[in-house]
Design a protein around this nucleic acid. Structure first.
Lengths: 182, 182
DNA sequence: AATATTTGTCAACAAGTGTTGACTTCATGC
DNA sequence: GCATGAAGTCAACACTTGTTGACAAATATT
């Protein structure tokens, strides 16, 4: 790994944390560079600017090839990815990255398009039964709502629940979402 | 209504729109004042600054006395308030105001405390049965998740659903949340 | 009518933002 | 050893932000 690749990836990792924690507009390039131990000007050099850095970070976040693998159940894969149990801190999960930036006046549109291209459309293509669109939307709503309730709002009934209990809550709601009949 | 009260309320209304659409940090005092047809400096005069303006707006948003009225069913009242069918544009709903600012580095803590004081704790006090905390958290998750999915992410299965269909989706998930048994 | 109080206007401020270009340092080729 | 190009440093830029204080206009009070 060359020197430039090293700083590039350090920048990308730091950016993903900051964008995921504070959102695009609240994240500062100087803080991103500082956390990566690198000069601010290098961001423009390697990514062309703040927008380019965000795009690179977004692309990395939403790269979920497992979703396309026929060997995997799409819903189970999505649950694993969304709840992201490997991440050390859910503050920096992909779910948060999406939610926090979906309304941004600058990158919101981009985030939504990427979300559809990389996640929602592939998921929809692999679901069957009646009312796929409606059930999928309800599934997304449950995942997103649970994430916000647990980590952003910190409502005790979810925030203080242990992993097992939270998993039961999630499964119960997901089952309801997927079994919806108009 | 005196002159000063008029500009004060115009400022407050404009602020609620901007804070609800862009979030605290992305909202600009100059735009708020401009939309209210008033000079920027008057914000500092009437509200003491940006933070004071936000607090006033937040207080107004979360003033839901109907929730405490024993004549009303608390859950039904909460649903009405959260889904906010009277608002001309859900972009400026109370739900959005809360979600969009719950993570802000400056006002996030304030928003969460107000949410608990004014909504969650009163709701919890009026619910009965087993596992109240867990079921309430799941209820919140459904409301919040549906709002984001429909209005922020704009997932077609919810965003394109008419009012009747969306209401059925919401009821189905809420029933599941409230009937949860550990 | 003259004074006092409220209400509104304007310009400036310090701080922070993303971005740029000239410069130095470093490593690799010949 | 020297020259070439990559990699990193630094200071400045134009701009926006929230806030402040001095001033003008309008309204109310005596």
């Amino acid at each position: 790994m060359s020197k430039s690749e090293h700083t590039r990836s350090a920048l990308l990792q730091s950016a993903t944390r900051q964008f995921g924690e504070f959102g695009y507009s609240n994240a500062s390039l100087r803080k991103i560079a500082g956390q990566a131990g690198v000069d601010v000007a290098l961001i423009s050099r390697y990514f062309g600017g703040k927008l380019g850095l965000f795009n690179a970070s977004l692309k990395e976040c939403l790269n979920w090839p497992e979703l396309l693998d026929p060997a995997n159940d799409p819903i189970e894969t999505a649950i694993e990815k969304f709840t992201d149990p490997t991440s050390e801190d859910h503050k920096f999960s992909t779910t948060r990255m999406i939610i926090l930036n979906a309304d941004d006046p600058i990158v919101g549109e981009r985030v939504r398009v990427a979300l559809f291209d990389k996640l929602i459309d592939p998921l929809e293509a692999r679901m069957d039964g009646a009312h796929v669109k409606e059930r999928l939307a309800m599934f997304i709503a449950v995942i997103v709502g649970a994430s916000i309730t647990r980590y952003s709002l910190q409502v005790p009934g979810m925030a203080s629940a242990d992993a097992k209990m939270h998993s039961r809550q999630l499964r119960h709601l997901i089952d309801a979402a997927l079994s919806f009949k108009c």
